[in-house]
Design a protein around this nucleic acid. Structure first.
Lengths: 215, 215
DNA sequence: AGTCTAATTATACGCTTGCATAATTGCGGA
DNA sequence: TCCGCAATTATGCAAGCGTATAATTAGACT
């Protein structure tokens, strides 16, 4: 047995950065920000801790990057069906709601990540900016979909009322997302999207449900 | 100048414990769990750090006590109007919703506290028990109020449908509570309860709004 | 093959953390 | 008044933290 003359391979920068980000996200999701120490992240990514400072100017920098990555992924996951499944606005709104209320968006790790980051958001300016942008993107997109769906059905509203509808629908999605992630065993598969679609249908006064499977 | 022969007063145990809990909650709300160090808590409560271990067997013990205290306070704040304002079930449901969507329940510190604790809940068995109990208490109470309000209006439902209504209404309250706490400047006073009442009215098919002020 | 350089590891430092233990001191009862 | 004891402070310690810097080494180029 020799001692440990650790072998290693050189990897492209983006790949290493990504591996470090993934490791950080996994640890934060599992044990909160407290569990994501430099040493733990490095071990999880199969590197030594010095490498983190080689790719990121500080640990906070890595955390910010991880936050941006996670938020971007969440947005992509819920908005992707929107464009692909684009027939009527009503169908796209339904797809948007459904995508946000089922795995992989609804997931204990996602909720845990969100909660872990919430505190940091209030202290770090960069993270605050990421937060606000992601949040308003999401809600604006939702408001746009609602507006188009209502227009499609010849229902007229005022801008204020439309804003309130978007806030309410956003709250339904957020609340169900949270409950589903925090108590994963409390709901059957497909139950959350069904409840969400029915509730949002009631709120905006436009049925989103007859898109296939019975309620 | 003498050095610092620190003077102190002896206080009843419950008072000291409470002061430590309040200090811990304030620090967690401001800077997350990471900011609530033994030394910071002690300083905030105007004692020295050793006293914490005199009243609590460990720091985790103090954090658990703080969590229990906070959750109990939140539940009290939302359920108090329920019993006091008890005329019709419909009015009590409206009061319940309104109380949960305005200060002091809607508050940045509350949301921050909730998020900070969420991670710990998954690791600590005691905190997990507190969490589940509080959550189900809240939702069961909501479900009961909805059931009574619907019965009062001679609307019949199935148990499954009733459960879904409770989940959806709970989601609306949770989601609005979160948004209001995370972006306190994004809503005018009274806007959140109004949106909540209107949305929940639509979901359960029973108007809760004509309780006074115009919409 | 040899060399050069950036990727990676290795080591160490200063600081903070939670916890333990010893030293004080306020305060009620005799 | 003083004595006893619990409440409170004071001090110290080992472990873990983020960061800085020096020492290696993989891998492309000639």
């Amino acid at each position: 047995m020799t001692q440990t003359p650790r072998k290693f391979r050189r990897e492209p920068a983006e790949q290493r950065k990504d591996a470090l980000i993934q490791a950080a996200l996994a640890l934060i999701a599992e044990h909160g920000v407290r569990g994501a120490t430099v040493r733990a992240i490095a071990e999880r990514a199969n590197v030594t801790q010095g490498l983190i400072r080689h790719y990121f100017t500080s640990k906070e920098d890595l955390i910010s990057a991880a936050y941006a990555f996670h938020m971007g992924r969440m947005t992509d996951l819920t908005t992707a069906p929107d464009v692909s499944q684009g027939t009527t606005a009503r169908a796209r709104l339904a797809a948007f709601v459904t995508a946000g209320l089922r795995p992989p968006v609804v997931d204990p790790a996602s909720v845990s990540l969100w909660a872990s980051f919430l505190n940091k958001v209030r202290e770090d300016a960069r993270m605050c900016a990421i937060h606000e942008q992601t949040y308003h993107d999401f809600r604006d997109r939702l408001e746009g979909l609602i507006a188009m769906a209502l227009a499609e059905a010849d229902i007229t509203t005022t801008p204020t009322h439309l804003r309130h509808l978007a806030i309410a629908c956003n709250a339904v999605i957020d609340g169900l997302w949270m409950e589903g992630g925090a108590l994963p065993d409390a709901f059957e598969p497909g139950e959350l999207p069904r409840i969400g679609l029915r509730s949002i249908s009631a709120i905006i006064g436009l049925d989103l449900q007859e898109t296939g499977h019975p309620s």
